[in-house]
Nucleic acid binder design. Structure first.
Lengths: 130, 130
DNA sequence: GTAAGTACCCACATAAATGTAAGTATCCAA
DNA sequence: TTGGATACTTACATTTATGTGGGTACTTAC
């Protein structure tokens, strides 16, 4: 009758409402300004750096590179460097990344679908104040 | 045979990958550092300002107030001022807010549940680099 | 009468995120 | 041979987000 490793025992589950829970970091990475969009874009297909940049309107090279690095460090996206010249690198989701992307997509999809209503509501409220 | 109002015709549906699509603003509001946590907290029950502040570890009064205002302007949370003294105000989700909160919760819940694996993965990668 | 709670707002300062422009080494098409 | 594409990185400047501490007007509990 032995208990699980100390590390796991101390981390049975995260709690995003807790101030110092590491789950917040992951959450922030996948919900950062560009993080979520990268997940959504990769949720459809494997893409190369420049392709991603074109899909995600408005993202700069710098932010795309940085975002991809963070997501890769979290084990959510996988980077495949073909070692060719000129460079050829493609990005796709890992198993965990796919799980998360699915949920991010559920969110973005609902918002996209109900945008007209959402905007109408917002406009009404704005006018009520004026 | 007439077409729908121009406004709606031009906005059949949002696209978060598009640079100037307003859906991005909504998305950012509900995935901002505190926005998502407020949605999750209110997803469980109606709460007063000070209660929310206690539930969401680390949030400042300033950010809570600001976040609530943005979410209210988007029509996702409703503010009820009982007009009493000392002040008594409570916050809850609107119908649209509930839809979104459900999806944000699906995301946070998956992350919370799989935190141990996620952290283990991250630790491995970090060590691989050193 | 002193302290704490309620729901905030405001000014100020700092921290974090993001953008811009340039540079790298190589290849291919015009 | 000039221009564009590839996948980045770096330095610098700026914008945005966030925190801190204080104040308000009033009540209840000690």
């Amino acid at each position: 009758m032995h208990s699980p490793p100390a590390v796991l025992a101390e981390l049975p589950r995260g709690d995003v409402l807790a101030r110092d829970c590491p789950s917040r970091q992951i959450l922030q990475h996948v919900t950062s300004r560009w993080g979520g969009l990268v997940m959504v874009a990769l949720g459809r297909e494997t893409l190369r750096f420049a392709q991603l940049r074109r899909r995600i309107g408005g993202i700069s090279e710098r932010m795309l590179a940085q975002t991809l690095q963070v997501l890769e460090a979290d084990g959510l996206v996988a980077r495949h460097d073909h070692g060719e010249v000129p460079p050829r690198v493609d990005y796709c989701l890992t198993a965990a990344g796919w799980e998360i992307a699915t949920r991010v997509f559920a969110l973005t999809d609902w918002i996209e679908t109900h945008l007209p209503e959402l905007l109408a509501e917002r406009a009404e409220k704005a006018q009520a104040l004026g």
